[in-house]
């Protein structure tokens, strides 16, 4: 993303998983979500990351205001999740997930993942929750980049 950018919006939210499948069989559904969002996001210059913990999704979207809002809305319409709670919506000066149309951090990653049992819903009661989730996703994204050697 070397092009000069206009105003950037970042939305951070979490939602509850409504996919009625055993955890072990979730991967194809998650892959489908990721494929769709990577395709949609790349087309309109939105970047971000998704975390899936088995019972909840946490997501960061960043990009031009209108595009982030449209992507957000498209995701809201998805019946595969519910109880959407927006943790934060604000303008940012730079992207945190440059190069990630939709990065993914999930329960089925490396065994030693210390965040396997992370539940974004507990963030509800904390004020810096959005920053925390965002930082967490950034951190995890970097870890998995290192591990997989991909960007």
């Amino acid at each position: 993303m070397s092009l000069p950018e206009g105003r950037l919006l970042r939305a951070v939210y979490f939602s509850r998983n409504c996919i009625d499948l055993p955890l072990a069989e979730m991967r194809p559904a998650i892959d489908d979500i990721l494929r769709t969002s990577q395709r949609n996001n790349a087309r309109v210059g939105v970047t971000g990351a998704l975390i899936f913990t088995g019972n909840a999704f946490g997501q960061v979207l960043e990009g031009p205001i209108e595009q982030v809002e449209e992507i957000f809305d498209r995701i809201q319409g998805d019946p595969r999740h519910c109880d959407v709670t927006v943790l934060d919506i604000c303008e940012v000066t730079e992207r945190s997930f440059t190069g990630w149309a939709m990065g993914y951090v999930g329960f089925d990653q490396a065994e030693d993942d210390p965040f396997r049992d992370f539940d974004p819903t507990v963030l509800r009661s904390q004020t810096p929750a959005a920053v925390e989730l965002c930082d967490l996703l950034c951190g995890l994204a970097q870890r998995s980049e290192l591990r997989n050697g991909t960007a």
Partner: peptide, 8 residues
């Protein structure tokens, strides 16, 4: 579910 409109 929440809507995002004009950054709100």
């Amino acid at each position: 579910r929440p809507f995002l409109v004009n950054g709100h």
